[in-house]
Structures are given as C-alpha cells and as structure tokens.
C-alpha cells in the first residue's frame, strides 16, 4: 500500500481554474464529484459502458470514470454544470424539457454533454447520425425517441439563430 501518493491537479472546469489534491488512483469522475463538488456528473458503472459520466475534455467527449485525475492536468473540462449560461438554459436543455426527453434524469447530464459535442461537430445530424453518436449513452427510461427529437430540434434552432 505504498501507492497513496498524491499530487495537485489543476484544470479548467467550466471556465474556472480549479486545483485539487488528487490521489494517484483517483478518476476524473471522482475528482469532479468528490474533490470539486460538481455532482451533476453521475457514476453509472465505472467501466465506461453507460456514459452517465460523460464530460468534455479538451474538446472531446470522454467517460470521466475511465480518465485518471492526473491526466486532467492542464485540461479544459466541461460538465453539465457548465452547459447553461447562468440562468439561461442552453437550447439543448430547453428542447429536452419541451420534448419530455428526460424521466429519472440520472443519464441526462451525460446525454447533454454528448449531444452538445455532436452539435459542435455536426450542426445538422440525421436521425441515424444522432442515434449512432449517442449509442454510448444508455437510458433505461425513455426509449430514446424524445432524446433524439430534442437533439435534432435543438440543432435546428441553433442553426437558424446562427444565420
């Protein structure tokens, strides 16, 4: 048990620079939840199978349960807490609300993060492209249809407001 060396990890989380004392074995998920107090990111499996812990790291979606906290040194992290602009919901959040695209809500933060990444890459995804992109996020409540509809509707709104 000589493994418990710790280090300070500094990362930009939702635009704010945060330093935490991280155990070498700490995951990025634990760093966000336990050290930074950002509990919006959820633990669903700790094996990278469910996507509930999805966050953006340097512009890419990652399962934060599979990333070590130490790897986040100097990284830009975006979590569900950073999606809304203050009190103004992001179009994705509004469309999730309008389309009843959430039920229990435990998978919702991961879906929002993944969907936001999709729309940054592809502002006009088809139904099939949206399903393919979100296949790594599991939802047990909705059957996905409302989620797919919400994402594509948000995309349409974001395209028209960008014009």
């Amino acid at each position: 048990m000589s493994m418990d060396t710790k280090r300070i990890v500094t990362a930009s989380i939702n635009g704010a620079e945060i330093s935490v004392m991280a155990d070498n074995r700490m995951s990025l998920l634990e760093m966000l939840r336990d050290a930074a107090g950002l509990t919006g990111t959820k633990e669903g499996c700790m094996t990278g199978d469910c996507g509930a812990c999805s966050v953006m790291m340097n512009g890419r979606v990652v399962d934060s349960c599979l990333v070590m906290a130490a790897e986040a040194e100097g990284a830009e992290i975006e979590t569900v807490e950073g999606i809304a602009d203050g009190k103004n919901l992001h179009p994705l959040q509004r469309k999730f609300l309008e389309h009843a695209a959430l039920q229990c809500g435990i998978c919702t933060p991961g879906f929002l993060v993944s969907a936001k990444a999709l729309l940054e890459k592809n502002p006009d995804p088809s139904d099939a492209e949206t399903r393919y992109w979100l296949a790594g996020n599991l939802c047990r409540c909705t059957g996905y249809q409302q989620i797919i509809d919400a994402v594509r509707d948000a995309a349409a709104e974001m395209r028209s407001s960008a014009k």
Partner: peptide
C-alpha cells in the same frame, strides 16, 4: 416535468 430544470442542470 416540474423537476426538469433541476435534472437538466445537474
């Protein structure tokens, strides 16, 4: 849902 915003913002 009345709890939607809480769930959408984490």
């Amino acid at each position: 849902r009345i709890d939607a915003v809480e769930k959408l913002t984490g």
